[in-house]
Simulated assay, not measured.
Amino acid sequence: MKKLIILLFAIPFLLIGCRASLPVAQESGKEDIAYLLFVSSNEYAGKNVVVKVDNNVPFTAKVVKNSKANRRGYQYGIAVGTRNLTVSYNGKNIYQKKIFVSTQEVKQIILP
């Protein structure tokens, strides 16, 4: 009898402890921003390039070597969506393309 009473009180507590938090598919806390990572195999690796996104104020970005890009690199935040990207080095355009980036995506820009 004593075991039955303990079991009747223990079952509701076990069921409450196993309850799933709802809604499960909801994500929160992610910033609405994407990232650019500039990669080059030889010529521009380790150098600074000038980056212009949608004709806004240009900024300087450091280029990492292609083999080290997965482990470390400098990521630069931009707004999500379709962006016009221009990369130049010593006044010469070396990369110009329209890109699409989504939230929390790290887009590798592969330079020659």
Rank of each mutant, 00 (worst) to 15 (best):
K2T: 14
K2Y: 03
K2I: 11
K3R: 10
L4I: 08
L4C: 00
I5F: 10
L7N: 00
L8Y: 05
F9K: 04
A10W: 03
A10C: 06
P12E: 07
P12L: 05
F13D: 09
F13R: 01
F13H: 10
L14Q: 06
L15P: 04
L15R: 09
I16R: 02
G17C: 05
G17N: 13
C18H: 12
A20P: 09
S21P: 14
S21G: 15
L22A: 00
P23L: 05
P23R: 04
P23M: 02
V24L: 08
A25S: 06
S28A: 01
G29V: 07
K30P: 01
K30Y: 14
E31H: 10
E31Q: 12
I33Y: 03
L36D: 04
L36V: 00
L37N: 10
F38D: 08
F38Q: 01
V39M: 06
S40I: 03
S41G: 09
N42W: 06
N42A: 13
N42I: 12
E43D: 11
Y44A: 01
A45Y: 02
A45H: 02
A45K: 10
G46M: 07
G46H: 06
N48I: 11
V49L: 01
V49H: 00
V50Q: 12
V50D: 08
V50P: 02
V51A: 10
V51I: 05
V51P: 06
V51S: 05
K52R: 13
K52Y: 00
N55V: 04
N56P: 10
N56H: 09
N56W: 04
P58N: 01
P58L: 03
T60Q: 12
K62G: 01
V63N: 08
V63R: 04
V64I: 15
K65A: 13
K65D: 14
N66K: 15
S67Y: 14
N70C: 06
N70W: 14
N70E: 14
N70Q: 12
R71F: 12
R71D: 15
R72I: 14
G73D: 00
Y74W: 11
Q75S: 08
Q75F: 04
Q75V: 06
Y76E: 07
G77I: 11
I78R: 01
I78G: 02
I78C: 04
G81C: 11
G81Y: 11
T82H: 04
T82Q: 09
R83F: 01
R83Q: 13
R83I: 05
N84P: 04
S88D: 05
N90T: 05
G91E: 05
K92G: 07
K92D: 10
K92V: 15
N93V: 14
N93Y: 01
Y95P: 04
Y95D: 09
Q96M: 06
I99A: 14
I99M: 15
F100D: 12
V101R: 03
T103A: 13
E105M: 12
E105H: 12
E105Q: 15
V106T: 10
V106S: 11
K107A: 07
K107V: 08
Q108C: 12
I109T: 06
I109F: 02
I109A: 09
I110Q: 09
L111W: 10
L111G: 07
P112D: 08
